[in-house]
């Protein structure tokens, strides 16, 4: 589930609030996203890759929060991890042209 919104990294754009398919975020009076409906999160990690500053962290447990903190996510280099492995950067798409999945599909049979 979505667990961490880094107030330091966040630039107060409205992207995560708009792109979350489960409508999890509200924003406070300063424009900072607030995790308002955490239990609706479907752990799809998509808010992370749309975030232009890697300010969001979604933990892997789908049924409830793990309690991970921002310093731990930072120390383990987890901010932006999914975006990096896809080839997305600063909220922009990229890397699909390098997808090696065809090799997997050939070997799968």
């Amino acid at each position: 589930m979505i667990e961490v919104v880094s107030a330091d990294r966040c630039i107060r754009c409205d992207i995560c609030e708009r792109v979350c398919p489960a409508f999890v975020f509200d924003r406070d009076e300063t424009g900072l996203p607030v995790i308002a409906r955490q239990d609706d999160c479907q752990t799809c990690f998509l808010c992370e890759i749309y975030c232009p500053t890697d300010a969001l962290y979604v933990a892997e447990q789908a049924h409830g929060p793990t309690g991970i903190t921002e310093p731990e996510a930072l120390q383990r280099d987890l901010f932006g991890a999914y975006a990096r492995s896809l080839g997305w950067s600063r909220g922009r798409a990229g890397g699909a042209e390098n997808d090696p999945t065809r090799h997997i599909r050939v070997a799968q049979v």
Binding site: F45, A59, E60, R76, L78, A81, Y82, S85, L86, N98, D99, P100, T101, H103, I104, A107
Partner: peptide
């Protein structure tokens, strides 16, 4: 090892839980 590399790069969503669990 070749398949491990293809899986990691081709199915990155599948590896998010493992990487986050360490």
């Amino acid at each position: 090892p070749a398949m491990q590399d293809w899986l990691r790069r081709g199915q990155p969503n599948c590896f998010q839980p493992y990487d986050r669990m360490g």
